[in-house]
Amino acid sequence: MHTMWKGTISFGLVNIPVKMHAATENKDISLRQLHKECQTPINYEKTCPVCKRSVKNDEIVKAYEYVKNKFVLLEEDDLKEIQREQQDKAVEIIDFVKLDEIDPIYFDKSYYLSPNEGGIKAYGLLRQALHETGKIGVAKMMIRSKERLAVIRVYKNTIVVETIHYPDEVRQVTDVPNVPEDVETVKKELDTAKLLIDQLTTTFDPGKYQDAYRHALIHLIEEKKAKKDVTTTTKEPTPDHVVDLMDVLQASLEKARKEKTKPHQPKRKTVKKQTAE
Rank of each mutant, 00 (worst) to 15 (best):
Q265M: 10
V67N: 14
E81A: 07
C48A: 09
K269E: 15
L195W: 14
E76D: 04
V230M: 09
P104Y: 09
I136S: 00
V151R: 01
Q199P: 10
R53V: 03
P17Q: 10
V50I: 05
K156V: 12
E101D: 13
R148M: 11
P17E: 00
F204W: 15
T238C: 14
V14M: 02
Y209L: 05
V14F: 00
V179T: 02
Y106V: 01
V154W: 08
L126D: 09
D28N: 15
V97N: 08
L34K: 06
G137W: 04
L99F: 10
N57M: 13
V230R: 15
T234I: 05
L196W: 00
L217Y: 03
I82K: 10
I136R: 03
L13P: 06
K258I: 06
D58R: 12
I82Y: 07
V271I: 15
M1R: 08
K68A: 10
K70G: 13
M246W: 03
A122E: 08
Q250K: 10
H165W: 04
V72K: 01
Q128F: 04
K224S: 14
L200N: 09
V97L: 05
V173W: 12
P237K: 01
E101T: 14
M246K: 09
N69V: 02
K70F: 09
G134N: 08
D240N: 03
D198E: 10
E101K: 07
I136Y: 06
E169S: 02
D58I: 02
T233C: 09
T8Q: 13
L190Y: 14
R171H: 11
D77R: 12
Y209H: 04
V14Q: 02
G118Q: 05
G134E: 02
V183G: 03
T174E: 15
E277I: 11
Y123K: 07
P266I: 05
Y64K: 06
S10F: 04
L245M: 03
D229Y: 11
D247P: 01
P206E: 08
R214D: 04
T163K: 07
D182L: 12
V170L: 10
A22T: 01
H35D: 00
Y155T: 15
Y64C: 03
R32G: 14
V61G: 13
S54I: 02
D240I: 00
E101R: 12
A139K: 05
K187M: 13
Q274W: 15
L196T: 00
